[in-house]
Amino acid sequence: MQHSNTQDTLVGLFVAAGIAGLFFLSLKASNLSSITQKDSFMVSARFENSDGLKVKSAVSAAGVKVGQVASIELDPTTYQSVVTMAIDAKYNNLPDDTTASIFTAGLLGEKYVNLEPGGSDTYLANNSAIDITQPAIILEKVIGQFLFKAAEEKK
């Protein structure tokens, strides 16, 4: 069986399409697929612990992605984690008494910030701060507390 130039070209195009598909899949998996910069405003929140949260982690409200984490820094005076979030401009109607919590997607998934809207008539604006926060739950700490309580009950 002889190879023709057409067959070689089709195989080459198929391989190139496969490589391009893997490239875009890896971009999507690493949250780098947003090539265009959307209009957004910055909101910060202070957490006692932001363990596992990363820059470009999702920020969601009611299960809908409304932004992403822009930066995570340590406040040198309070030793709290200051998380700055870029919220898409179309979600500019989040009340200023919104609460922020760090959750885990699935049992061992990646962390994200969940916003729970309050009932205020004024809204979050650029460079505003969310005052009510709930830190990330550290699985190792919870398991340690459970084991410690179980050992205490046996005594």
Rank of each mutant, 00 (worst) to 15 (best):
Q2A: 08
Q2M: 11
N5G: 10
N5L: 14
T6D: 07
T6G: 03
D8C: 06
T9D: 09
T9N: 04
L10S: 13
V11P: 07
G12Y: 00
G12H: 01
A16D: 05
A16E: 04
A16N: 06
I19L: 13
L22E: 06
F23E: 07
F23M: 14
F23K: 05
F23V: 13
F24H: 04
F24N: 04
S26T: 08
S26A: 08
S26I: 07
L27V: 02
K28M: 07
N31S: 10
N31T: 05
N31L: 03
L32F: 02
S33W: 08
S33T: 01
S33Y: 09
S34G: 10
I35N: 05
T36G: 06
S40A: 15
S40R: 10
M42K: 08
M42W: 00
V43N: 14
S44P: 03
A45M: 02
R46C: 02
S50H: 01
S50W: 00
D51G: 02
G52V: 10
L53Y: 00
K54I: 05
K54H: 08
K54R: 13
V55T: 15
V55E: 14
V59Q: 01
S60C: 09
A61S: 15
G63Q: 04
V64W: 12
K65Y: 03
V66Y: 04
Q68M: 15
S71M: 06
E73C: 03
L74R: 07
T77W: 00
T78Q: 05
T78A: 08
Y79V: 07
Q80R: 13
S81M: 05
A86V: 01
A86M: 01
A86L: 03
D88M: 05
D88F: 08
A89L: 02
N92S: 14
N92L: 04
P95V: 11
P95W: 11
P95N: 07
P95D: 08
D97G: 00
S101T: 12
I102R: 01
F103K: 13
T104A: 12
G106Y: 09
L107D: 11
L107P: 04
L108M: 11
G109H: 03
K111W: 00
K111S: 04
Y112E: 03
N114T: 00
E116V: 13
E116I: 14
P117Q: 09
P117T: 09
G118P: 05
G118S: 07
T122D: 11
T122I: 04
Y123G: 00
Y123K: 14
Y123N: 12
A125E: 07
N127V: 02
S128N: 12
A129K: 15
I130H: 00
I130Y: 00
D131N: 10
I132M: 12
A136T: 13
A136N: 06
A136W: 00
I137H: 08
I137R: 09
L139F: 03
L139G: 01
K141H: 10
I143S: 07
G144P: 02
F146V: 12
F146S: 13
L147E: 15
A150C: 07
A150N: 13
A150P: 06
A150K: 15
A151T: 02
E152K: 09
E153N: 09
